[in-house]
């Protein structure tokens, strides 16, 4: 490093202040932005969610916002303990949690993953007929792999002592209803090859980002590795789809130096928004 520690500290403080200023007031703003009656253009909504402008389709529906509901739907009803997954904007880490809470969080994260995998399988099976032969072949393979992911997560949940959360539409081994609702528009548009490709990109993007993001909420290295043994494959799915979207442009298939987490299904700040604004 050529920067001194003081210089680096000042720089990082400045970045943090900038970030906090950017985040201040976001919930209220987002409530307005994602209000179906607000008539805010989709591009503006995507930009507000921090979406790269080139890939606006990836954030259609405000996945970052609605993701909170997805997590909530995968948490077992609180009995004797409360899992801090629906707080008001604070990042949740495992550091301040009891052993029991960490075990509960592990199960929650795995269930979130399983619900996303189940959704991917369901949607790919539903829309594959609208894709051309090349994309259909790819999605058929992806669906098989997502099914394998779902099964492995189910096995992991069982091995950790988790029990199926049977509560009607919020059963954790079913496509998560909140995410399904969030994706209503891209699902409705998945009637031709372009729409199917857009939907697939959204599904793979949110899946990969969720696994990457949720690593911090898993208390055991083995679980983190298990999650990323899947997350890495979702990233490969993304690269394959981006190759189909922009053929002969390989640099578009791996554009970022670091895996992003902006569109991850995450706990926290947006529960209120989902509850009152959607």
């Amino acid at each position: 490093m050529t920067l001194s520690r003081d210089e680096m500290r000042r720089e990082l403080d400045a970045i943090k202040r900038e970030h906090e200023a950017d985040m201040a007031g976001r919930p209220g703003l987002l409530r307005r932005l994602f209000d179906p009656e607000s008539r805010v253009p989709a591009e503006v909504r995507a930009a507000a969610a921090g979406a790269p402008s080139r890939r606006q389709l990836l954030t259609a529906g405000g996945l970052t916002i609605l993701g909170a509901a997805v997590v909530s739907a995968c948490v077992e009803p609180p009995e004797e303990r409360q899992i801090p997954v629906t707080g008001a904007g604070k990042e949740t880490t495992t550091t301040s949690m009891s052993s029991a809470d960490m075990e509960a969080m592990n199960l929650t994260v795995l269930r979130v993953g399983q619900s996303i995998e189940a959704l991917a399988v369901q949607q790919y099976e539903a829309v594959v007929g609208a894709a051309d032969a090349e994309l259909a072949d790819v999605l058929t393979l992806f669906a098989e792999q997502h099914q394998e992911h779902a099964q492995s997560l189910s096995d992991a949940i069982t091995s950790l002592g988790g029990e199926p959360y049977q509560d009607g539409s919020q059963a954790w081994d079913k496509p998560n209803p909140a995410l399904l609702e969030a994706l209503a528009e891209p699902i409705a548009l998945a009637t031709d090859n372009t729409g199917v490709l857009a939907l697939a990109l959204i599904l793979e993007n949110v899946a990969q980002q969720t696994y990457t993001y949720q690593v911090k909420n898993l208390s055991e290295p083995e679980l983190r590795a298990a999650a990323m043994s899947i997350g890495g494959i979702e990233a490969r799915h993304m690269a394959v789809l981006l190759g189909i979207e922009t053929p002969d442009t390989p640099t578009a298939q791996a554009p970022f130096p670091f895996g992003k987490t902006l569109d991850a299904v995450k706990e926290g700040e947006a529960v209120e928004v989902v509850g009152s604004g959607q």
């Binding site: 690593v215 190759g243 298939q253």
Partner: peptide, 23 residues
């Protein structure tokens, strides 16, 4: 956790690199 997060942000990128060269 911090180091694990870092690894989790890099692994997907190396994976995508592998897809590009494979294709």
């Amino acid at each position: 956790t911090l180091l694990a997060e870092s690894a989790a942000k890099i692994l997907p990128v190396e994976s995508q690199h592998a897809v590009v060269w494979s294709q």
